[in-house]
Design a protein around this nucleic acid. Sequence first.
DNA 1: CGGAGTATTGAAACCTATCAACAATTGTGG
DNA 2: CCACAATTGTTGATAGGTTTCAATACTCCG
Lengths: 233, 233
Amino acid sequence: MISHAMNARHTDVATSVAAEASGESAPWLPAKGMRTSAVRDSVLFREGDEARSCYRIQSGAIRVVKVLADGRRYVADFFLPGDVVGFDCGDTYEYTAEAIVDTELVRYPRPLIEARFEENPAAGRRLLDVTLQRLAAAQSQMLLLGRMNAMERVATFLLNLERRLGAKESVDRTIPLAMTRADIADHLGLTLETVSRMLNQLKRDGTIGLPDPHRISVLKPQRLERMACAGGH
Amino acid sequence: MISHAMNARHTDVATSVAAEASGESAPWLPAKGMRTSAVRDSVLFREGDEARSCYRIQSGAIRVVKVLADGRRYVADFFLPGDVVGFDCGDTYEYTAEAIVDTELVRYPRPLIEARFEENPAAGRRLLDVTLQRLAAAQSQMLLLGRMNAMERVATFLLNLERRLGAKESVDRTIPLAMTRADIADHLGLTLETVSRMLNQLKRDGTIGLPDPHRISVLKPQRLERMACAGGH
DNA sequence: CGGAGTATTGAAACCTATCAACAATTGTGG
DNA sequence: CCACAATTGTTGATAGGTTTCAATACTCCG
């Protein structure tokens, strides 16, 4: 599957007590948190659970899902290394968070975060900015879901993912895909078959390469951007 | 494809200099702002404009739209009395805001709001909560756009709108619709014809009544909730 | 009262979903 | 290390829900 995917036993999320620096990517977090790991497909927290903690992703990937009673699923977002998942409004989580692959995280109890806001207003302001950015991203995603066709959705998704991973992760413009076709489909409001068809159509075009199902190399970025949609933001 | 270009009179937004209390609904705003009015279909601000102010709606309604180059449009949100529109991340607006009907607003310059955060951290915390709520609503909307069929979308929309308007506005469970079918369609990722068909199907069912195109009375709320989707949030 | 904008309704086309079969990959255990 | 089983991905044929195109009716205001 992917480099860091190890044995996928169904143990729960394991927590060690070692302290860990919060890292540069989220300056609004407390200085220390608990190192934690989650094996593939384990649930970090469930929609409706009491929101005790949030988590910064160290390595791996998390998906955040909302589910209808009959099983229809929407993947609201993917969280990649550096991202923080689990800070919601209210006392309960708004969605379920699951590990896509074996994932290393740092856990921060909510009370510690709230305390940090008291002592340091700038931290709260930083979180506000992050939240406003996520809201803007959500609005772009709604435009995608509401008004783009299958090919535009897939092309836009690939470009966004490449941008988020940054040059560091994607060597030679090759995107390491942690998630399955089903995850991508549930994120784009499509079926996994349609996602597969679009990817293979792009492959036949010569726009992308698919060395293996979990690696996508962007061969013709400009063409991909043109397919992404008839008008950037 | 679709391009509901709304070109009516293009008078600008008129501003009076009278001061006005910020009201109970948005305690994170400064105490005073400028009363302003916007006639139907006028543009409050445009995507990409420098974000100088935000606006609290006093009466009327605002729609917030994102547009693709070929004219396809998505209505990211409707803003109703009490709501505040225009506080985005970055220095420019993320979307275009237009008046759906003649609208009364109170304008707050961004520098004044920023200053208020400096002096009163609780104000910033309130805005964070509001923003987190809007993010949660956006995630529910993505589930709707990605995974619900036309009837479920329309039913969900009506229920949400009724809840937002509150008992005060909707006398006798009758929802006053400020927006057109095209606005609703662009908000639900449908065409205006499909929205019309779904509404009239609900009318034939006896689930709702349509006294006139801009008034919807909910006759059988439970049935509407059942149609809304196979699984509540 | 008339005219422009808005809403409704019908018929046909299209894109994507669904169903189904098969191929490829991954992980497991001999 | 290889073979097998399970999962994941690909591809094809068909069906179905929405869109598109078109015509007509309604509503609101000047």
